[in-house]
Write a protein that binds this DNA or RNA. Structure first.
Length: 408
RNA sequence: GGGAGAGUUCCAGAGCGGUCAAAUGGGGCAGACUGUAAAUCUGUUGUCUACGACUUCGGUGGUUCGAAUCCACCCUCUCCCA
């Protein structure tokens, strides 16, 4: 099976500008393609990971990848599909985030001579002169068309500033620029980027009279139509300091039945026939598929060793006989103890399991806290300092959240 | 530039002088059920030294015994006209 067919079979391809041409280019290793990453945070997330996987797959098929850091476009911020204005980032933040992205990307993709290339659009965008830019490309954009673009729909109701409106032009300019400097003839990106990407192929056609292509990756949505890779507390990050390997593993382990196979197909490198075999699994058997998904992904992101630790920890906790080894841990200092004891509520807050004393109180009253395998019966429960020595104390919030507290 | 309207707790959105820590829905958290799933049902959802106290309704000042609610100015946003 050739690469294009494989991508299609995995459900990764959302939209393409010219299927025949793209198939031809990609399958024969003739594409030089770029994917843009705007430095909106100090870590990559699952969406970026999908893009990086795509990059890797296409690279293995002989195509030349360019990872484009959005040091310039990040100065503006993409309004696509958003209902409100993005927080405008400071120059320092953008630089910091770019550095973080760069470091993480190097784990997944090999950069260097003859391999993948990494460039930053700050290198050309920041130098642009307003009047010159307008004279060069301004006449190639129809405001009427831009306003019709799907990505601005939501903003037409709440208002779109001229500042953000320009984002599309910046992104189009990137493609136009790299087409000339790097022979970049294709752009990939999330499906929400479709309008911006078309703006680029259109600009190249108008300015240079040449054809360039664009293809979007299906956005990872769950069966309820919500973007995956997000929790109530924010994204599922690739940086272990922001989302621990254990939490990362658990996110995928806890995925809904309806979404398991789709995720395995889109996110893992398992052979398709193996995945098709799982397609018949039903009911609680799907739990096995969830374990496979969680294990595969955690391995890809954090390495075999971390993945195994996460799996062991999960097995330990849910199959009884909790292993405290890989559990998130809080070290309690002297200040937290009063006369050698600490109250249950303070303990919950100290471990970061509750945001406030009141929340902890509620939780205990509702019977949601277990400490050292014993349900906490009252809000005035107290623990001795000695209890925390050695292995420490296991605090369990609800059914799935385990935390360990120790003394120094 | 002119005119109209809006800013309420995580979000949407009621409230229009005391009975407001603020209806309702969503989301979150917990309990029951279960397969570490989904659906469903129940409770809960500002803070605290907790049957009481304290701080919140864009900002600042004012009227009043009393303000999310009234007035003034300011800021932000939306809509209509140019």
């Amino acid at each position: 099976m050739q690469i294009y067919e494989e991508l299609k079979a995995r459900g990764l391809i959302a939209q393409v500008t010219d299927e025949e041409e793209i198939r031809e280019l990609v399958n024969n290793g003739k594409a030089t393609f770029y994917i843009g990453f705007d430095p909106t945070a100090d870590s990559l997330h699952v969406g970026h990971f999908m893009a990086l996987c795509l990059m890797k797959r296409l690279q293995m098929a002989g195509n030349k990848p360019i990872a484009l850091l959005g040091g310039g476009t990040g100065m503006v911020g993409d309004p696509s599909g958003r209902s409100d204005l993005r927080q405008v980032m400071t120059v320092d933040t953008i630089q910091h985030n770019c550095d973080c992205f760069k470091k993480q990307m190097e784990h997944f993709i090999e950069f260097g001579e003859g391999k993948a290339k990494m460039i930053n659009n700050a290198d050309w965008l920041l130098k642009l002169n307003y009047i010159e830019l307008m004279r060069e490309v301004g006449s190639c954009f129809s405001v009427n068309n831009m306003l019709r673009a799907e990505c601005y729909k939501q903003r037409m109701e709440k208002g779109l500033t001229f500042f953000e409106f320009n984002y599309m032009i910046m992104q189009a300019y990137d493609f136009y620029h790299m087409y000339q400097t790097d022979g970049c003839n294709m752009q990939f990106g999330g499906d929400d980027q479709w309008s911006n990407m078309l703006a680029g192929t259109e600009l190249i056609r108008r300015k240079l009279g040449k054809d360039a292509y664009a293809m979007t990756i299906t956005l990872l949505m769950n069966s309820e139509g919500k973007k995956m890779g997000k929790t109530a507390n924010g994204a599922v990050w690739l940086d272990p300091a922001k989302t621990s390997p254990f939490d990362f593993y658990q996110y995928w382990r806890n995925i809904g039945d309806a979404d398991v196979l789709k995720c395995i197909r889109m996110l893992t490198f398992l052979p398709l026939d193996e995945i098709d075999a799982m397609d018949h699994w039903e009911g609680s058997q799907l739990n096995r598929a969830k374990e496979i998904l969680a294990m595969e992904l955690t391995t890809l992101i954090h390495g075999t060793e971390e993945a195994q630790k996460a799996e062991e920890a999960a097995h330990g906790l849910f199959a009884g006989g909790a292993s405290t080894e890989h559990m998130p841990t809080t070290v309690l200092g002297d200040a937290q103890f009063e006369n050698g004891t600490i109250g249950a509520l303070s303990l919950l807050v100290a471990c970061g399991l509750c945001a406030s004393n009141g929340e902890a109180r509620r939780l205990v009253q509702q019977g949601g806290v277990t400490i050292n395998d014993k349900k906490v019966e009252g809000v005035d429960a107290v623990y001795q300092r000695d209890d925390f020595a050695g292995e420490g104390v296991i605090v369990k919030k609800g059914k799935k959240i385990f935390h360990r507290a120790v003394t120094q």
